[in-house]
């Protein structure tokens, strides 16, 4: 009876969703609601209003700067929640990390990881610094750094990787995304504009594009470092438990 009700509910929901999907405006139609309200303003005014060379960067960091700042805060609070539940690994107590994987990583895997990790980090640096004028940026580059740290940690263990990025380096950098964004926002007010104004009105008009570029790159670096450190810290404090279990057993 219960299963039948669930099935009926799912069929009704699927029918409703399919009906709605069938009535959605076709993709790429110039008369779409998405293409008639704010998008024309973004596409036509972005270069003049935000002085950025890439419209998407202009939208993410300028028109929707508050939105992006909120997202950065969400990532930081995710780390805060994980730390509140699991607790941070204690400094200098990670030597006892016991590798519990049944298959010890072979020389080939170790050599490959040693060779690949610097290249992955290099690519992420490119993603962050070039994100101002190409796809990618702080979030993506930070996630790629985090991914490279995860690869390194799974092969070489927590002890080796936490020696490379010790806690005293990670701890101040975890909040760097929020802090950089906020500082750049306040600097916009100091420069005579509103919060999160990149092109300061008090600066000569000829210097504004360069200023916007540097501030954008600064924000991207902050977001990238913050995201990478948050991901690494989450991984470390999830893996760290391993050691305590191993010590108790």
């Amino acid at each position: 009876m219960k299963n039948l009700l669930a099935l009926l509910f799912i069929i009704a929901l699927a029918a409703l969703l399919l009906y709605v999907a069938a009535n959605m405006p076709p993709m790429g139609d110039p008369d779409n609601p998405t293409a008639t309200h704010v998008i024309p303003r973004y596409l036509e005014g972005a270069e003049k209003e935000t002085h950025t060379e890439n419209v998407i960067t202009g939208i993410i960091l300028n028109y929707r700067g508050y939105d992006t700042m909120g997202e950065v805060t969400v990532i930081f609070s995710a780390l805060a929640a994980v730390l509140a539940v699991l607790g941070r690994e204690r400094r200098g107590r990670i030597h006892a990390y016991v590798d519990r994987s049944t298959v010890p990583s072979s020389v080939i895997v170790r050599t490959m990881v040693r060779f690949l990790v610097p290249l992955i980090v290099l690519f992420s640096v490119y993603t962050i610094l070039h994100g101002e004028i190409s796809p990618g940026g702080g979030f993506q580059g930070g996630a790629i750094i985090g991914g490279s740290m995860i690869v390194f940690t799974t092969i070489f263990g927590l002890y080796e990787s936490s020696r490379r990025i010790p806690q005293k380096v990670r701890f101040p950098l975890e909040g760097s995304a929020v802090v950089t964004f906020f500082l750049v926002g306040v600097l916009g007010m100091v420069g005579g504009g509103n919060f999160l104004t990149y092109a300061w009105p008090r600066v000569a008009a000829g210097l504004q594009p360069a200023l916007v570029t540097w501030l954008t790159v600064l924000v991207e670096i902050g977001i990238g470092l913050g995201g990478a450190m948050v991901l690494t810290s989450i991984l470390f404090c999830m893996i760290r438990e391993e050691e305590e279990i191993a010590v108790v057993a």
């Binding site: 796809p135 993506q140 996630a143 790629i144 991914g147 995860i150 991901l231």
Partner: peptide
Amino acid sequence: DLALTEAAVGAGVTTVL
């Protein structure tokens, strides 16, 4: 942009976690 994020976070980081 989304493709990069999905590949790095969705396929990489969350899988390992």
